[in-house]
């Protein structure tokens, strides 16, 4: 069953149509890539799904329920959590405090909110244990007491994923998780993403750079000018003429 159904979603800003009726579905347990050139509407799409923007028309269903018009925190509480393109962390808190803060929706209640699909993630009774496990899992334990703003950029990106993980998402949406990382960091973050999927988390990731996502994603949706132009495996997408044109045909648009 599809965990996320995006049904003919459109968004207009005044006269500008940023997203023109895009539909796609993500089955549970998949790593899905959403790619497109700069200005193609992928980040807008991300905001529309996570509730930071409201679709002008169309519907978004998560686990079969419409989440259109819900506030972002309500959507996050249901288990759909997103990260941000420009790394977003609590800069003045330590790494441990960042991850502990991520437990907000579970804190103060007995046990975590139940998420049936997450049985493969270990269960914990306290925020401390869960934080410890996440820090260990994301290889952040050594820096647990470091103030977040002092971390190198790559580590900050990992931290933002760790914080999102603390919400115990069933669907994790990552906005350009690999952009700006050095090759070693890219490989390590990509491995983390793959292993999150092995723990039962469905993943939707947005990337500008096609090559870096090919190895990670099982299925790729390509959008351009606010419309879906292709969908398929890495090989299918890279040989699709529409995709090639979108990326190579108008190089001038890359300055957006």
């Amino acid at each position: 069953m599809a965990i996320l159904e995006v049904d003919n979603v459109a968004k207009r800003f005044g006269k500008l149509a940023a997203v023109k009726g895009i539909s796609f579905e993500i089955p549970e347990g998949q790593i899905r890539g959403l790619i497109g050139p700069n200005g193609s509407g992928k980040t807008t799409m991300f905001h529309l799904i996570s509730g930071f923007l409201k679709p002008t028309s169309g519907d978004v269903r998560f686990q079969g329920h419409s989440i259109k018009g819900k506030r972002p925190h309500q959507i996050a509480k249901r288990g759909l959590v997103r990260t941000f393109q420009l790394t977003s962390i609590y800069r003045e808190m330590t790494v441990r405090e960042n991850v502990a803060m991520g437990h907000h929706v579970h804190a103060g209640r007995r046990g975590a909110r139940s998420r049936p699909s997450l049985e493969r993630l270990p269960q914990f009774g306290t925020v401390d244990e869960s934080t410890e496990w996440i820090l260990d899992f994301m290889a952040l334990s050594d820096d647990a007491e470091t103030t977040a703003r002092l971390l190198p950029a790559g580590m900050q990106r990992v931290l933002s994923i760790a914080t999102a993980l603390a919400v115990r998402p069933t669907l994790l949406m990552l906005d350009e998780p690999l952009a700006g990382l050095n090759p070693t960091e890219k490989i390590s973050v990509a491995q983390k993403i793959a292993s999150l999927r092995d723990h039962g988390i469905t993943i939707l990731l947005v990337e500008h750079d096609v090559r870096s996502v090919l190895s990670v994603c099982e299925l790729i949706t390509v959008i351009d000018f606010g419309e879906k132009i292709a969908e398929g495996t890495a090989d299918e997408v890279t040989s699709n003429p529409a995709v090639i044109e979108a990326y190579l045909g108008k190089p001038a648009r890359h300055d957006a």
């Binding site: 962390i89 800069r91 919400v167």
Partner: peptide
């Protein structure tokens, strides 16, 4: 308290707080 710290977290980064399920409003 936890609530007090969460309020400061909202002040520090409202967007991130909303995205991890905090009712920032």
């Amino acid at each position: 308290s936890r609530l007090g710290n969460t309020i400061k977290a909202v002040a520090a980064n409202e967007e991130l707080s909303e995205s991890i399920g905090i009712n920032t409003w």
